[in-house]
Amino acid sequence: MKNSYLRHSYRRRNVTKLPVYKKAIHIFKLSRQIVEYLRGDTSVLELHKSQNQKDIYSDKLIMTSLGLAPKIAMAETSPDLNVKLASLSSLEQTTAALIQYCEKLELKSGKGKEFLHLLRTEIKKFGHLQSKWAVSIHSKN
């Protein structure tokens, strides 16, 4: 039992060093900055309450990108294979959703299209990193 715990906590400390984790944090920060540029001084809470389509997609973009890093940590550190697989599957769906939110914001927004295009490019890079990382997770088990 103790050996399993030590291995689990050792993995946890190294999650933040994973390229896929670092890219997830980068995507969240970039999403936040782009939404601040697009929506001005609108707080995240105001975005969440708004009925405006741009605000709704902006809120979804921020909140969805915020969930990337915890899902990576869950897949990397969980001793349960089912949890790992569920986290990997959820990450794939989340990545696809982020690209859709970027596309919808590009259609709805008059400004910032070049930034949204940049974010979409970063999300696609994340998808490639995620795929390689998922293979390594599967090979460990």
Rank of each mutant, 00 (worst) to 15 (best):
L118H: 06
L45V: 13
K108R: 12
I99W: 00
T77K: 08
D41F: 11
S90M: 01
S131D: 07
P70T: 07
F115N: 13
V135N: 00
E122V: 01
L68K: 05
D59A: 08
E46L: 09
K104M: 12
E92G: 11
S90C: 01
D59H: 15
Q33T: 02
I99M: 10
G112W: 02
E76D: 11
K111E: 04
N82Y: 09
Y37E: 05
Q100M: 01
F115S: 06
A86T: 10
L91Q: 03
L119Y: 03
I62Q: 01
S90K: 00
W133K: 05
M74S: 04
S87K: 05
G110H: 11
L38H: 03
S43E: 04
M63S: 13
L61P: 00
I62C: 03
S50K: 06
Q51E: 11
V44P: 00
F115W: 14
K84T: 09
L107T: 10
I56Q: 14
S139N: 11
K111R: 10
S78Q: 02
L105G: 07
E122I: 01
L68M: 05
A86D: 10
N52S: 13
E36N: 09
Q100C: 06
E76K: 14
S43G: 09
S87N: 07
A97H: 12
K108N: 13
L66R: 10
I56L: 15
L45D: 08
V44L: 13
K124Q: 14
M63V: 11
V135D: 02
L85C: 06
N52D: 15
K104G: 06
S89F: 00
S109R: 08
G67V: 00
L85T: 05
K71Y: 04
S89P: 00
S109G: 05
W133P: 09
F115Q: 14
K125S: 13
Q100Y: 07
L47A: 06
K113P: 00
